[in-house]
Design a protein around this nucleic acid. Structure first.
Length: 831
DNA sequence: CAGTGAGCGAGCTTCCGCTTGACTT
C-alpha cells in the first residue's frame, strides 16, 4: 500500500465512520425507513445524532406453514428477511452502543409495525427507546418530533399484523386451489384478483357493446361584425337524430331559410387548480402528459428523490408543509404578481389514505429546472408546475352561447365559446383527462348582437356512433383501485407487474378497424350525401385481460365472492381501524373471517369442477364432430371431437388459438380454420413442403428444416409453393451466413454470426466479441480461447443456476426477463 | 426453437407492503 492509497483509505473512513462509530460513542441513533431520508435528517440534527435506515420492513412471516400458527390464535412466526440480515446486524450493533435509540419510521400502520419489529429484533429497552413521528422532512418538523417522543402504539401494530395475516391467509389458501383447479403457478390475492376482475368486467362490457348510430347536425355561418370584419361561426343543432330519414326531413325544412342571432347567453364560471401530486395522481398525469408507464414514473421519481429534488414519491397525502406554502407564495408573487397567489390547504378525499408523508413536491420551489436525464427533467417540471399551480388563484372564465334561429322552422343552432377572463393557475398548469374523444378547444366567438343577421355557408349531418366503455390504461386502473381503497402507493406499480407476470393481463396496442359513416350536406339549397371511412377501436398501450385471467376471475367470483367483492378491502379496513383504536381484538377479527373462509376453501377443493373455460362452438360440417375451445396445458386451444371415455376410440384433434383469438369471442368458422393446418404444399427437391403453426408462429417445414413465415406478409392459409420455396431459400442463405469460421484444433469452437453480431460458440456457451474487433475471420484459435477464458466469470454461476430440471423452465424464464428489465434501467441511469 | 393437450408423483409455485440494490442475451 503506497502513501496515496493509505491517505485515501484514511480520509474515506475518517469521514464516514471515524468520529461517530469508533471514538465517540453514539449518543443518539435515529432509525428511519429510507436511506435518502436518513441523509437529509442527519443534516438537520447535527453531530450528536447518527441517522440510519431500516430499508423498510426488516421481518416478514415465514413462508413455511403460512408463518401462522392458526390453531393458536393465529400467532405469527416472523423471520428476518434474507436481504435485511446485514442491515439488522449493523443496526443491532449501533443500537447497543447508543445511549438513546429514536425510532422514526413513518406514522402509519406499516411504519408502526416496522418500529415494533425493530424494537423486538434489535432487543431494545423501553427506557432508552423513543418513538417519534413526523409527516414532513423539514427542520422544524423534525425538531418538534424530537421534543415529543411517545411509545410504540401496540393497537396500531396489531392492526398491521391483522392486515398482514389476512393477506397471507387469503393469498396462500386460495392460490393452491387455483393450482389444482385451473393451472399451476397461478395466484390470487386481495388486491391482484380484484384488479383483474375490474379488467375482465370492463372487457365483457366492451364485447357486449353494440354501437348505436346517430346523426349530429352542424352548421357553418358567416357573420359580419360591427367593424366590418367577416367571421365564420360554427354552431351545433342541440338535438340528435336517430335515422337518416329524420335528418333528410330536417335539412329539407332548412332549405331557403334565413338566419339571425336569436339569443346570447353569458355565464361566468371559475376553475380551480388540482391538488398537489400523490403517487396515484402523479402516475396518471405522467401517463397522460408524458406517456410514462407507472413503473417508469416511479423509477424516475425515485431518482429525483434520491438526488434531493423532490419529496417522497410514495404518498397518499395532498398536504404541503408550511415552508413549502411560503416558498410557493414567494415564487408566484415574484413570477406573476400577488393577484395570482391563493394559498390553499387541500384535503384528501380518499378514505383509505394514511397520510404519513407530504404530497409529492419539489424540495426547493425556487428551482424551476433541474439538471439530469431528460425524463427526470420532464417529470420534475410536471411536479413543479402542479405544485405551484395548486397555490394559485382560480381561473375566471366566461362561457357564451349564441343561438341562431332558422326562419323556416324556428329551430335554433347553438355556438358555444369560452373566454378566459383571468387565467390564474392556468398560466402554469392544466390537468389532463382520460377522456379519449372529448378534446375541448378554446373557441373565441365573434362579437354579435341579438337580431344580427347571419348567412348560411353549409349544414352537414354526420353519422356518429355511441362509444363503448374505454379499456383501462395502467394509470386509469391505478385511479380506480385508489377510489376503491384497494392497494397502497407502494404497491400500485408492482401490482400491475404481478398481474401481467401471472398471465392474467397483457399490455398491448391494437389496430383499429375501418368503419364507414355517412354525411349528409345541405349547401346552397342542395342536399347531397357521401360515405366516408374512419378508423375506430384502435388502442394504445391498454390493459387487456387474457383468457386465463377471465377463467380465473370467473372461478374466484363463483367460489370466493366475499374476497372478490369490490368492498372487501374497505370493509376489512374498517375493522383494522377498530383494532387500531383498541375496540377490537385482532385475532378475533381474523378468526371470524378465517373460519368460514377456510371451510369454503376445503369445500371448493373437494367439490368444484376443474375450470377450463370450455365453450362448445358447434359441429364440424365435415366430420359432424363437436368443436370446442378451452384452456389446455399450453394455453387456449380448440378441440375437434370429444375427449373419449375409453382409450380405444379415436383421439380428438387439437390446435392452439392464434394471437388475437379468444375463448369468449372466437367463432365456429374461425375454429374450423384452425384445423386446416398443417397444409401440404407439394414437393420441392423431391421432398415435402408443409406449412403449419408452431409454438413460435407459422412456419414452413422442408427436409427437416424450418423457416418462419413473415409476419403481416404471409398467411399460412393462403401461402403457395413458390413463396414457400422463397422462404426456404432465404433461410438457407441466412444459415450459410451464420457460419464464419471453424477450427481444426477443436471442432467445438466456432465463430458464428448471430442476432447481436459475431460471437464465439464453444461447447454450447456463447461469448461475445469485443466491439473493436473488426474482422472476426482473422481471429486465431488462440485468440478465441483467450476470449473464452476471459469471459465473464459470473456467467458460470448464472448458467449453473438455470441448468436445472425442465420443470423449472418457467421460473428461469421469469428470472431472465427481470434481469433484462434491470439492465435497461441501469443503462438509463448511466445516461 | 417448431404438431404438446393422458396420468403418475416428487417438489415447486402463492399473498401485501415497506424499502433499495442489481450486472449481458
Amino acid at each position: 500500500m503506497n502513501l496515496g492509497t493509505l491517505l485515501f483509505y484514511f480520509a474515506k473512513n475518517f469521514n464516514l465512520n471515524f468520529p461517530k462509530n469508533r471514538f465517540d460513542m453514539v449518543e443518539n441513533l435515529v432509525i428511519v425507513e429510507s436511506p435518502a431520508k436518513a441523509k437529509t435528517i442527519e443534516k438537520f440534527l447535527g453531530k450528536d445524532f447518527l441517522v440510519k435506515s431500516s430499508f423498510g420492513h426488516i421481518r416478514d412471516l415465514e413462508k413455511k406453514d403460512f408463518g401462522i400458527d392458526i390453531k393458536n390464535n393465529f400467532t405469527p412466526k416472523y423471520i428476518v428477511s434474507t436481504d435485511k440480515k446485514k442491515v439488522v446486524t449493523e443496526l443491532k450493533k449501533l443500537a447497543k452502543e447508543a445511549k438513546t435509540v429514536w425510532i422514526a419510521s413513518d406514522e402509519d400502520r406499516e411504519g408502526e409495525a416496522i418500529a415494533w419489529h425493530l424494537f423486538e429484533v434489535l432487543k431494545l429497552k423501553k427506557e432508552n427507546t423513543k418513538r417519534i413521528v413526523f409527516h414532513e422532512i423539514t427542520k422544524p418538523a423534525i425538531l418538534k418530533a424530537i421534543e415529543n417522543p411517545r411509545d410504540i402504539d401496540d393497537n396500531l401494530v396489531n392492526a398491521q399484523q391483522a392486515r398482514r395475516i389476512l393477506d397471507r391467509l387469503v393469498g396462500f389458501e386460495i392460490s393452491p386451489v387455483l393450482w389444482k383447479k385451473v393451472k399451476p403457478q397461478l395466484s390470487a390475492g386481495r388486491v391482484q384478483s380484484v384488479s383483474v376482475r375490474l379488467l375482465v368486467e370492463r372487457e365483457r362490457e366492451i364485447i357486449a357493446f353494440k354501437p348505436e348510430a346517430y346523426y349530429k347536425v352542424v352548421a357553418n355561418f358567416f357573420i359580419t361584425e360591427e367593424n366590418g370584419n367577416q367571421k365564420t361561426l360554427k354552431a351545433e343543432y342541440p338535438k340528435r337524430f336517430a335515422t337518416k330519414e329524420e335528418v333528410l326531413q330536417f335539412l329539407e325544412s332548412c332549405k331557403n331559410a334565413e338566419y339571425k342571432v336569436s339569443d346570447i347567453e353569458k355565464k361566468p364560471s371559475t376553475r380551480k387548480p388540482a391538488a398537489p401530486f400523490t403517487t396515484s395522481t402523479l402516475q396518471q398525469e405522467a401517463s397522460r402528459k408524458l406517456g410514462f408507464s407507472v413503473a417508469q414514473t416511479m423509477a424516475v421519481a425515485q431518482r429525483l428523490y434520491e438526488a434531493g429534488n423532490i419529496t417522497y414519491m410514495r404518498t397518499d397525502s395532498v398536504n404541503l408543509a408550511d415552508t413549502a406554502l411560503a416558498a410557493a407564495k414567494e415564487e408566484i408573487t415574484k413570477r406573476h404578481g400577488e393577484e395570482y397567489v391563493k394559498i390553499r390547504k387541500y384535503q384528501t378525499k380518499n378514505k383509505g389514505a394514511q397520510e404519513a408523508h407530504e404530497a409529492i413536491r419539489p424540495t426547493y420551489l425556487n428551482k424551476e429546472v433541474i439538471s439530469g436525464e431528460s425524463n427526470e427533467i420532464r417529470l420534475y417540471n410536471l411536479i413543479w408546475k402542479r405544485t405551484i399551480a395548486s397555490q394559485m388563484s382560480d381561473a375566471k372564465l366566461e362561457k357564451t352561447n349564441i343561438k341562431i334561429a332558422a326562419s323556416t322552422n324556428g329551430e335554433e343552432f347553438i355556438a358555444t365559446g369560452e373566454m378566459i377572463k383571468f387565467d390564474g393557475f392556468l398560466k402554469v398548469y392544466m390537468e389532463s383527462t382520460d377522456d379519449e374523444n372529448g378534446k375541448q378547444e378554446e373557441t373565441l366567438l365573434p362579437t354579435v348582437k341579438v337580431n344580427d343577421p347571419v348567412t348560411e355557408d353549409f349544414l352537414n349531418a354526420t353519422q356518429n356512433f355511441t362509444y363503448r366503455p374505454p379499456r383501462f390504461t395502467e394509470a386509469s386502473l391505478v385511479k380506480k383501485l385508489e377510489e376503491l381503497g384497494i392497494g397502497r402507493p407502494s404497491t400500485y406499480a408492482p401490482t400491475i407487474t404481478t398481474v401481467q407476470n401471472r398471465g392474467y393481463v397483457v399490455k398491448e396496442s391494437r389496430d383499429g378497424v375501418e368503419r364507414k359513416y355517412e354525411v349528409v350536406n345541405l349547401k346552397e339549397n342542395n342536399i347531397s350525401e357521401e360515405v366516408k371511412t374512419q378508423i375506430t377501436g384502435a388502442e394504445k398501450r391498454k390493459l387487456f385481460p387474457t383468457d386465463i385471467g377471465m377463467v380465473v376471475t370467473d372461478f374466484l367470483n363463483e367460489h370466493f365472492p366475499n374476497v372478490m367483492n369490490y368492498n372487501f378491502t374497505a370493509d376489512v379496513e374498517k375493522e383494522f381501524d377498530d383494532i387500531a383504536l383498541g375496540k377490537l381484538i385482532w385475532h378475533e377479527m381474523i378468526g371470524k373471517f378465517y373460519n368460514p373462509f377456510h371451510e369454503n376453501v376445503e369445500k371448493t377443493l373437494e367439490h368444484s369442477e376443474r375450470s377450463t373455460g370450455e365453450r362448445i362452438l358447434g359441429e364440424d360440417p365435415k366430420t359432424g364432430k363437436v368443436i370446442l375451445v378451452r384452456i389446455g396445458r399450453y394455453g387456449p386451444m380448440a378441440q375437434l371431437g370429444e375427449t373419449p371415455e375409453d382409450k380405444e376410440a379415436e383421439a380428438p384433434k387439437f390446435a392452439s388459438l392464434r394471437p388475437g383469438q379468444h375463448l369468449e369471442t372466437i367463432t365456429l368458422e374461425e375454429a374450423i380454420d384452425l384445423f386446416k393446418l398443417p397444409r401440404d404444399l407439394g414437393l420441392y427437391e423431391d421432398k415435402k413442403v408443409v406449412v403449419a403453426i408452431g409454438r413460435f408462429g407459422p412456419y414452413v417445414r422442408h427436409d427437416g428444416k424450418f423457416a418462419s413465415l413473415k409476419k403481416d406478409i404471409d398467411d399460412p392459409m393462403e401461402i403457395d409453393l413458390p413463396r414457400a420455396i422463397e422462404l426456404i431459400e432465404e433461410k438457407r442463405k441466412k444459415d450459410r451466413e451464420k457460419f464464419i469460421k471453424a477450427f481444426d484444433e477443436d471442432p467445438d469452437l466456432q465463430i458464428l454470426n448471430g442476432r447481436w453480431g459475431p460471437y464465439i460458440s464453444y461447447k454450447k456457451e456463447n461469448f461475445r466479441l469485443a466491439k473493436d474487433i473488426e474482422d472476426p475471420k482473422a481471429l486465431s484459435f488462440e485468440d478465441c480461447m483467450k476470449i473464452i477464458k476471459e469471459g465473464p466469470k459470473k456467467k458460470t454461476t448464472k448458467k449453473a443456476a438455470s441448468k436445472k430440471t425442465t420443470a423449472k423452465k418457467t421460473v428461469t424464464k421469469k428470472k431472465t426477463t427481470t434481469t433484462k428489465k434491470k439492465t435497461t434501467t441501469t443503462k438509463k441511469a448511466k445516461k
